[in-house]
């Protein structure tokens, strides 16, 4: 395999460049996926049937907590990739561990939030509104969950193999994915929670 040392580690082989490009296209598909969920949400959000509406169930505290956790994790993974480019494996792994822990905490709060909703009578089957709300949030949450496992696997591989073009490439792609989830969350925060609470 030809390694081009003039480029950052994650871009250094032809295969790596293809993978990063392909992943961007994949993120394009993911944008369409979430756009469809958002469009459905805006169509259904006042179709509450006999169930509660957004203002009745949304609470600002867990949502703010989730936002802070996820935004911070996006920052720490950025630091992780920076460390990787400097070739500092320990620092990179440290930042990745912090990122995953923040992601785990986010997921914990989100599960708590879902349990609260169900207790307040806003389950998946209550109304069109609660169905699309929980599906949209749940799709994001499922992406975070998958990300946690994926990130963990990459950490194990970096530990096993050190920083190679291959592990560097995987880490970088993972960081793209993680940033993307953060961007989606910002949309969820603004257009679902803030709009719903107003």
């Amino acid at each position: 395999m030809k390694i081009d040392h003039s480029l950052p580690l994650e871009y250094s082989t032809e295969e790596n460049r293809l993978k990063i490009f392909g992943f961007w296209i994949f993120l394009g598909a993911e944008i369409m996926l979430f756009a469809t969920l958002f469009a459905s949400y805006f169509t259904l959000y006042n179709r509450t049937g006999s169930g509660p509406n957004g203002a009745e169930i949304f609470h600002i505290t867990p949502v703010l907590l989730e936002t802070i956790l996820l935004l911070t994790s996006s920052f720490t993974i950025g630091l992780g990739v920076h460390a990787m480019r400097l070739g500092r494996q320990k620092a990179m792994m440290g930042f990745f561990v912090v990122t995953l822990l923040l992601g785990l905490a986010f997921l914990g709060v989100e599960i708590f939030e879902f349990v609260t909703y169900v207790h307040e009578g806003a389950g998946l089957q209550t109304s069109a509104f609660t169905s699309i709300l929980l599906t949209t949030l749940g799709t994001h949450g499922a992406h975070v969950t998958v990300g946690l496992f994926w990130g963990l696997y990459i950490l194990i591989q970096v530990k096993r193999d050190g920083l190679t073009p291959e592990t560097g490439n995987k880490s970088f792609i993972f960081s793209l994915y993680w940033h993307f989830l953060d961007v989606v969350w910002i949309f969820i925060f603004s257009f679902i929670y803030l709009k719903g609470m107003m």
């Binding site: 369409m32 259904l44 006999s50």
Partner: peptide, 30 residues
């Protein structure tokens, strides 16, 4: 790449209506 994710979501919503009793395309509850 732009059209199929829409189908993915629509089918997932339909599946949930059929299997898990969600209310996306049902006759009542919005």
């Amino acid at each position: 790449v732009f059209a199929f994710p829409v189908l993915t979501v629509a089918l997932a919503m339909g599946t949930m209506d059929l299997l898990f009793g969600t209310q996306f395309f049902t006759l009542d509850n919005g």
